[in-house]
């Protein structure tokens, strides 16, 4: 039981950890890739979506850092 819990803890930390937006973003990329697989625009949309996720994730961290510094 202890090892099972440690196994799930490892995968939770590995996949989600402190960036759940990255996990949800990757799931969204897979869903969009599935929905648009046959579209000729998919090779442009998918990287754009990945960049949006990266901007959002970095943006959240930057806002958190700046607001906590301003508050303190």
């Amino acid at each position: 039981m202890k090892y099972l819990a440690a196994f799930f803890r490892f995968w939770y930390d590995f996949l989600i950890g402190d960036t759940p937006e990255v996990f949800l973003g990757a799931v969204l990329v897979l869903l969009v890739a599935y929905a648009m697989a046959k579209s000729t625009e998919a090779p442009a949309i998918l990287p754009a979506l990945v960049i949006v996720i990266l901007v959002l994730s970095v943006g959240f961290a930057v806002i958190r850092s700046l607001t906590s510094k301003q508050g303190g």
Partner: peptide
Amino acid sequence: VGGLLLIYGLQWLR
């Protein structure tokens, strides 16, 4: 693997 690499890569890059 693509999904896993996206998650892991985005975490590293971030």
